[in-house]
Design a protein around this nucleic acid. Sequence first.
DNA 1: TTGTATTTACGAAAGGCTTCGTATATGTTT
DNA 2: AAACATATACGAAGCCTTTCGTAAATACAA
Lengths: 127, 127
Amino acid sequence: MVKPTDSELEILHVLWLNGPSTVRQIHEELSRNRDIGYTTALKLMQIMYEKGLLTRTEDARSHVYTAAVSEEDTQRSLVDRFVETTFRGSASKLVMQVLGQHKASREELDEIKNLLKQIDQNTTDEK
Amino acid sequence: MVKPTDSELEILHVLWLNGPSTVRQIHEELSRNRDIGYTTALKLMQIMYEKGLLTRTEDARSHVYTAAVSEEDTQRSLVDRFVETTFRGSASKLVMQVLGQHKASREELDEIKNLLKQIDQNTTDEK
DNA sequence: TTGTATTTACGAAAGGCTTCGTATATGTTT
DNA sequence: AAACATATACGAAGCCTTTCGTAAATACAA
């Protein structure tokens, strides 16, 4: 599984959110957050294409790029790596850190609680 | 807050675990996990010293290095960054990902549930 | 004291990421 | 057709990280 850099993640996020886009569209989105030249965005996307992170159609004058990796898979693989390097493999340590640090909304907390319940049940079932 | 690289994190982990150490000691620990030259470890630690990630005493022939940043603070700052880049700031999404993916032990799950209860109470108190 | 081992310091190479300038191709407008 | 706008391709610079070789200092042993 390929590990996207931070810049590449920015681009992937736009594609995941908006669907297939041209370089111009991506560049416009990125420009909202920070200063970045058009050819810089272009180059990034060309490299991502070589890496297999993006696909593209070259029919039109402007190429249309599509994310070749899913948000789910990418996040999973990044989380794996992060847990390993930063928490020495202890996922629960990470969870505790996050919950202790960030304010989650009531809805989010409920979601998490429900998820925990499900895990509980599954664990019990297995026995 | 400085962001340690993955290699630097490895070194910090050893120092957090074992306390102040010489280059030799660090190198021995790192060698357990992967091939790495002695001078490579030395150079890394010298750079970390310049960055302010480590302090050192030069009294003895062998310098003794100490972590200049705490594990807690470092993890907090790394988590912040990670949530931002990978989950666009949604901490709960990260938690859901981790819980859905990694098997946590019963004790860990209980810990997390307790933490959630505390958060619940605090949230209620505030109202 | 001479040689051996260990340590630090330093420089430099290799590779990756980000950035942009320039060249070239391709449409569009007048 | 000529001028203009826009797109892609490409190369290269600048920076950072990792890696290691080599030199110089320091301690110890024969």
